Amino acid sequence: MRRGLLGRVLGEHPVGAVFVTPYVVFLAAVFAYPLGFAVYMSFHDYFFTAPGAIVERPFVGFDNYVTVLSDPAVRRAFWNVLVFLVINVPLTVVLALGLANALNAAIRWRTFFRVSYYVPYVTASVAVVGVWLFLFNSNGLVNSVLGPLAPDPSWLVNSKLAMPTVAIYVTWKQLGFFILLYLAALQNVSKDLYEAAAMDGADKWKSFWNVTVPGVRPATTLVVLLATVTGANLFTEPYLLTGGGGPDGASASPVLVMYQKGIEQGNPDIGSAIGVLLVIAVLALALIERRFVGREES
């Protein structure tokens, strides 16, 4: 029985377990252990001490979670990231699929355009943020072009426009990666389907809607999930673009608030509670998206 159980665990080719083990160790060390330790901290009165100091950190139950959920700054941060996802995820899917479909066609300078869309994704955020600050500050290029139509206060210091501006920036910066995913998926859509659609009298739009969109549905599910997870972990963009979530927390994200409360204010137990709630919220949202976006894959 022991051999049978070991055989089921290792499979027909046990050597595969040898190659998988380093990755399993990596996941345990980088993801599983920190998450488990965060859950532990969230249920205790945890605080930083000098190295080697032995102090009591009493169990406090759900007190940290009550504190987090009653904090207006935390509730607003979760609302902000929801606004961000509502803008970012659909915009990412539509633009990435549309541009990938265009770049998959036989057009001039196709390689140049593919590289151009991918460059912002691999460029350091600090460098790209500097360009966007130049474009969207009060005296920036965008306001100069808009003239009297420019918002007042300006984009990044406007409580209603700060988070949408951050969402558009993130969409633009990460678009190249998602275009690459769709380009790979488009290679698996049979050309025979397009020929059959053309024979049935379908124009380009109907072919796109009835052949391309269903053909890349698995990629769409992946894009939606990745955009949701990366968006929920938003930190660098509001930290750099709006000076730490301004104005007055209008662009603060849960990860940014977690950093502020856990590191800057020295309350790692509160920060851990925010992180655990964020993980639960993202998992729930991902399951909902997987159910609805990928429902026709099975």
Rank of each mutant, 00 (worst) to 15 (best):
S144R: 14
F84A: 05
L99M: 11
E264F: 08
L180I: 11
N101C: 12
G4M: 06
V293R: 09
A162M: 03
Q260A: 13
V282K: 01
A184E: 06
N101T: 14
N101V: 13
N88K: 12
N88I: 05
V25K: 00
L180P: 02
K191Q: 03
I288D: 02
T49H: 00
V122I: 15
D152N: 09
A50V: 09
Y259Q: 09
Y118H: 08
T171W: 01
V122T: 07
V189C: 10
A29R: 01
L156Q: 08
V122P: 02
M163C: 10
I270M: 03
P218H: 04
V223C: 01
P90Q: 11
G147I: 11
S154T: 14
V60F: 00
V157I: 15
P238A: 09
G249T: 10
V166D: 03
L186T: 10
D152C: 00
R295H: 05
L135G: 04
L82S: 15
L35W: 00
F43T: 15
R295C: 04
T220S: 11
P238V: 11
I288N: 04
A198K: 12
D45S: 14
V55S: 09
D192P: 03
A219H: 02
Q187V: 15
N158D: 11
L5V: 12
R110A: 14
K160Q: 15
R217V: 11
V279D: 03
A232W: 13
G176K: 02
Q260W: 08
L141Y: 07
Y33R: 08
N104A: 14
A100N: 05
A102Y: 09
H13F: 02
G231E: 08
I179H: 01
I274K: 06
G176V: 09
F177V: 03
W109P: 00
V20Q: 00
A232K: 03
L6K: 04
V189G: 08
N143H: 05
M1K: 14
V293W: 07
N80E: 06
S272F: 11
G245E: 01
P268D: 01
S190T: 10
F59R: 06
Y118D: 06
G262Y: 10
F26C: 07
S70V: 01
S190F: 01
L99C: 08
P238D: 04
V166W: 03
P218V: 06
K204C: 09
F178Q: 12
D200K: 10
R291T: 15
A167N: 01
R114M: 11
P90G: 12
R217P: 04
L225A: 14
L135P: 00
R8A: 11
R8L: 04
L240V: 13
P247H: 11
D192E: 15
F59P: 02
V119E: 01
L222V: 15
